[in-house]
Nucleic acid binder design. Structure first.
Length: 267
DNA sequence: ATGGTCGCTAAGCGA
């Protein structure tokens, strides 16, 4: 059986405020699955109706009031849903669904990793300590992955030199410190996962998914970072046929500070 | 070196 699955991931920074551009992404790009992060929306207030109307009948939500929150929208039914409370803090930062792809179960894990605050020292900054602990727990859990899996989301780390606009200037900036970059590599390696985005973009080319709101002209300055990722188990990595960072969406009306990433798999 | 902008939810926190 042949099959094609397109997965998009997007840190939306309030799904209610940005419903119009979520709808635009779905209409223009028609992914089979869209994983959202930072929905900032309690489950009861999630805009299910308008999204179902666009053909995304299957919507798994894991939100909370004010902060964080993830959701996964799908044209295909879910075979299972799982929400894991990383670090036992009650944060809504993880959601796994399983869907059928060409007659096999594929797990899609949607993550919003803690940003980690400003000071990259776990001794003085609890938020940074939390980020490192969260990554460690991801690695521990990935070590026992069994089903074919796609991991997507805002991992809040730009691990490689050309994942940031200036490697030297960002070495002490949270998101690109060596301790985080090494930790993220360890997480990926623990699951034997493949960095799908970098299979399409050479390591020596710049690759960003996030541009700060604070820049006067984000596109001209282009001081980006690759905080969002698509990883898969090796079986699926060989089926990846396309990957795109939708940079244009950073310039849409009332934009998120993140751009969507879209990947296609053909089985 | 500093401050710059957002989105909650109701002054400050988190990013």
């Amino acid at each position: 059986m042949t099959d094609r699955l397109t997965i998009a991931t997007w840190n939306i920074n309030s799904v209610r405020l940005r419903l119009p551009i979520v709808e635009k992404l779905l209409l223009d790009h028609a992914p089979d699955i869209l994983c959202l992060q930072e929905t900032k929306c309690p489950n009861g207030n999630f805009p299910l109706g308008p999204l179902r109307k666009l053909g995304y009948e299957h919507i798994a939500v894991h939100g909370q009031k004010g902060y964080h929150g993830v959701a996964t929208l799908s044209r295909r039914p879910f075979l299972s849903e799982e929400r894991i409370d990383y670090c036992g803090k009650g944060d809504s930062r993880h959601l796994t669904v399983e869907v059928d792809v060409a007659g096999s179960r594929v797990a899609v894990q949607n993550f919003y990793v803690p940003a980690g605050g400003d000071e990259p020292d776990p001794e003085v900054n609890d938020k940074f300590a939390h980020k490192l602990a969260f990554l460690d727990e991801m690695g521990d859990r990935f070590a026992s992955l069994t089903t074919p899996t796609v991991v997507v989301g805002d991992l809040n780390v730009a691990p490689y030199e050309h994942d940031v606009w200036s490697h030297k200037k960002l070495l002490k900036v949270v998101s690109h410190t060596p301790v985080e970059c090494d930790r993220l590599e360890a997480v990926r390696a623990a699951g034997g996962l493949v960095d799908v985005m970098r299979r399409f973009v050479p390591m020596e080319d710049k690759l960003y998914t996030w541009w700060s709101y604070r820049a006067k002209d984000w596109s001209a300055a282009d001081k980006g970072r690759r905080l969002d990722h698509v990883w898969t188990t090796p079986d699926l990595a060989g089926q990846a046929t396309r990957m795109e960072v939708l940079r244009a969406a950073r310039g849409w009306e009332k934009p998120s500070d993140h751009a969507p990433v879209i990947a296609r798999f053909e089985a």
